[in-house]
Design a protein around this nucleic acid. Structure first.
Lengths: 340, 340
DNA sequence: CTGAAAGCGCTTACAG
DNA sequence: CTGAAAGCGCTTACAG
């Protein structure tokens, strides 16, 4: 009888097996493999060899149960169908995976209620950390995060962060910068076309307003806001709607590149000269915007870097290291192409 | 002293608390909450009330450890930056979430080695189920899946499934259908432009070849294959390269919409009349393709349905229910617009 | 239909 | 630096 019939065993080697093979106690094996505290280097090496030889893989469930912390980080984003958030996720995973942390992706569809439900479900898993988008959530969700005491870093925005950890950029400043650019190009009737109307779009809008007001050029009739989700198709529709209402418009600041791309296609279709007749700008610098007709002027946002930096901040928090700045503003870049 | 100082307790109510409140044993409480076997309806109701009153949330780690199965399903896809896979995921989550299963998303970047590493890491979590893309993986990865005995459904392809569970469409037939369409439009020098060159692209290529060969029109010089990742920019580049090499081409079948969109933009830029001078077709019917200039002829793939159907098949397997068909072909739709 | 016992595979907290 | 004991919060397998 080589294998004693342990009734419920899974067949996978356990820490006890590794410990036995290395001739140490399970706790010592545990400590050696986690490199947690001073374990004699010789013993440590023996344990690692034994683990290697047996093909030992720690059981995350047992680990989570015993330590009250899983090795998963929950990330909540509004949408997966927006390249912006995909880039953000790639940045996050690039940092988290090498650190042995898994990413649990939750998609909120811009619905606070959905986010709250996801939070409940994910918090039950006692994630090691939490990454959430922006600050716009239900009071209940905020309470859940706080009471869970799980370290949490906020993504994309830095405004209104208060004491919270956050990595992002000033959406307001970026909106202002684009508006300044359009004015510098000699435009005077600058429209803002927004969809989805999530907090970040509204912050860009605030920047746009501030600049126009400062120049005495703000005209509420040039703001076109639609709560529908952004898309190329909607960009075309909104361009038409705006032109019908305000044929005198000489520049359009679309709140993101999807809309702007659709706007440009619609302009081409309608024979509307861009930028001669009307300048067109976007936001985010998504893939393809540089290939457009004409190439699109936009704001490049460092979303991959935001993801990486936020993940590194979270790692620091998990390790109990000091975080020098609770809020990190990674800025943006105005990319001027032929559409303005 | 109300709260006895249980040293390592988390403060959250446990199954024992619920059982005590309901006046039953923990096992009965467990069974009542899982609705697993005949528990007296009265007791069951009492347990559910107690759980509700205490705000009890089962600990997934404890559950996983005791049952040897987590409530997570690992999904491996090549890329998140392709809308195709995002739609697939949405379909999967739409079915899995209501069933109480969480989705663990792994991105392989089309690298079999990366997929194998992800598989190792995810399998350590003893997922309840596995959803993987296609059949192109390392032998080691195949072995891992098999030995894990975790139910696995394959996505997107049905070809070469053998005994495996799979939900998808015949990429080959879709490639053939598009080629037939171009021939029916009177085109005779039909090019195939492919990038990434993953198995599904090659299957579309096979369909294309088969049809052209049947018509005696196959010309290897009209196949342009580039292993680089697909993008709008690459579509433009490949269009130029093809035209330079074969100015006589009268139709171009791009292996996906990203490339085709870029090809159309480049054609516009170059003043190349589409479809008069050359017809252009894509694959997948991504967002925006209907808004293009001209609107793009393409193949609509039912990826959301594939995700849903695969998830439902997985649920059936988890419940030990019979699955009538191991392979499900959900077909495709030829969408003819003005570009051909 | 219900339950007492044992166990899942780890780590914490306490000693030495 | 190392370890024996206890425990994390559930479910399985066996009785009755």
């Amino acid at each position: 009888m080589t294998a004693p019939s342990r009734k419920r065993a899974t067949g996978r080697p356990t820490l006890a097996d590794v410990a036995a093979a290395a001739g140490v106690s399970p706790i010592t094996a545990s400590r050696a493999l986690r490199a947690t505290r001073g374990v004699d280097e010789q013993l440590s090496a023996r344990v690692r060899e034994a683990a290697e030889a047996l093909g030992y893989v720690p059981d995350p469930a047992a680990r989570a149960l015993a330590s009250a912390h899983s090795s998963q980080v929950a990330v909540l984003i509004p949408l997966l169908s927006n390249a912006l958030f995909v880039d953000l996720l790639e940045g996050v995973q690039r940092v988290l995976r090498p650190a042995g942390l898994q990413t649990l992706i939750g998609v909120t569809h811009y619905q606070p209620a959905e986010e709250e439900a996801l939070l409940r479900s994910y918090l039950a898993h006692r994630p090691a950390g939490l990454l959430v988008t922006g600050f716009d959530r239900t009071a209940a969700a905020r309470g859940l995060i706080e009471r869970s005491r799980v370290p949490c870093v906020h993504l994309m925005e830095t405004q209104a962060a208060g004491e919270a950890y956050a990595v992002g950029l000033s959406q307001d400043a970026a909106g202002a910068a684009m508006t300044e650019h359009l004015l510098a190009r000699g435009r005077r009737r600058v429209a803002f076309v927004g969809a989805q109307l999530d907090p970040r779009v509204l912050q860009r809008l605030a920047g746009y307003r501030r600049v126009l007001q400062a120049h005495g050029l703000h005209d509420p009739g040039l703001e076109l806001l639609d709560p529908a989700p952004s898309s190329i198709a909607l960009g075309g529709v909104l361009l038409q709607r705006l032109l019908a209402a305000r044929p005198d418009v000489d520049a359009i600041f679309f709140c993101n590149d999807d809309l702007a791309q659709g706007g440009l296609l619609a302009a081409l279709k309608a024979g509307l000269a861009v930028p001669q007749r009307v300048a067109v700008a976007g936001f985010n610098d998504l893939a393809g915007s540089d290939q457009w007709l004409p190439p699109l002027t936009t704001i490049r946002t460092p979303r991959a870097e935001i993801g990486e930096r936020a993940a590194r901040m979270l790692l620091a928090l998990l390790r109990g290291e000091a975080v020098d700045a609770r809020q990190v503003d990674l800025g943006f870049e105005l990319v001027v192409r032929e559409s303005t």
